[in-house]
Simulated scan of single mutants.
Amino acid sequence: MMAGRTRGRPRLGADEPNRREVILAAARELFADRGFERTTMRAIGSRAGVDPALIHHYFGNKDALVVEALRPDVDPAEVFGGLSAFLPQPGTEFITRVLHVWEDDGPRRDRAVALLRIAVTHPEIGEALSVFFLGIAHTALGECVSDDQRDLRLALIAGQIVGLVLLRHVIRQPDIAGAGLDDLAVRVGPVIDHYLSAQDPDVSGLRDAAR
């Protein structure tokens, strides 16, 4: 009598290191062809030639898989290193680098735009993408930001990046989508500098007026 297949972790072959990348490649193709909602784990497994259980082993669920498959393959330390050399105003250089991450690699941009579209309506994916953008802000500008309300400042910078990318590449607002990279960097850079070091405004008068 043949022993039945045991439950739990799927049995992996000698080519285990490659299977993860094969799954990601299959997921990218299907998400691009069918969209997020119509792509199933079973279909990804079929395209990749693996048991769907192996996909769950590596990635957990479809939300986690789409984040891993579509997020920009960017090393923030490599791309954004050395911005402290541009103090006291590193914002323009930072935005220039952010924009070039999106502009210089078409396939990477297309994957990231697809992920942004999904994130708008899927909170778990949106949270993972938020962590990614926050990671960029922390890595790039962690040495440049003031200590007071440090996390809030970096979160505002991450929000500025997300808003700019959404308007340029997803919503395609004509003025921003049609603007040159240098022009955008010069205009948005000072906003980043403000978030990095500006003193908190005195809002006591506004609070009193609101009572």
Rank of each mutant, 00 (worst) to 15 (best):
A112Y: 05
H57D: 04
G159Y: 02
S146A: 15
W102Y: 12
F94R: 03
E124N: 08
Y58L: 04
R97P: 05
D148I: 09
D148K: 07
V79N: 08
S84V: 10
G159F: 03
R71L: 11
D105A: 11
I176R: 01
V170T: 04
A140F: 01
P88V: 12
L152E: 15
T121M: 07
D147L: 12
P107T: 10
E78N: 12
H100A: 15
L115P: 01
L87D: 15
E143L: 12
D175L: 11
A85I: 05
D104F: 07
I136Y: 00
I95E: 04
G159T: 09
V98Q: 02
A85P: 06
H57M: 08
E93I: 08
D175R: 08
A158S: 13
A69W: 00
A114K: 12
D104Q: 11
V98N: 02
K62N: 08
C144E: 01
A140T: 03
G159P: 10
P174K: 04
D75K: 06
P88R: 13
I118F: 05
N61W: 01
V165E: 09
I157T: 07
E68A: 10
A114M: 15
G81H: 05
Q89V: 08
E78V: 14
D104L: 12
R97V: 09
G126W: 00
E93G: 11
D73M: 14
P107M: 07
D105M: 09
G163C: 13
A77G: 15
D75V: 09
L99N: 05
W102S: 07
L65A: 01
V162N: 10
P90H: 02
A77L: 15
L167P: 02
H100Q: 15
L83V: 08
D73W: 07
L141C: 05
P76T: 11
E143I: 09
P174W: 02
P72R: 05
P90K: 03
T96R: 11
I176N: 03
V101Q: 02
A77S: 15
F94I: 06
G82V: 08
L99Y: 06
K62D: 08
I125F: 00
V67T: 11
A177Y: 04
L70M: 12
V131W: 10
G106L: 15
A155C: 14
D105I: 07
L87Y: 04
R153E: 11
D175F: 05
S84T: 12
I95N: 02
H56G: 09
G60N: 04
A64H: 13
Q89N: 13
R153A: 11
L134P: 00
L70P: 01
F132C: 06
L83K: 00
L65V: 00
V101S: 04
L166F: 14
I157D: 04
L141P: 00
H56N: 11
H138G: 10
A64N: 14
L156Y: 10
V170G: 04
A128R: 04
P76F: 06
V74K: 04
I125P: 00
R172C: 14
L154A: 12
V170M: 04
E68R: 03
V162W: 03
L166W: 11
K62H: 10
L167F: 06
V67K: 00
N61I: 01
R71M: 13
F133K: 02
R111A: 13
A137H: 01
S146P: 02
Q149N: 14
H56D: 05
G91W: 00
L87I: 07
L83I: 08
R109N: 10
R109S: 10
L164W: 02
A119H: 03
D105Q: 10
T92M: 09
S146I: 09
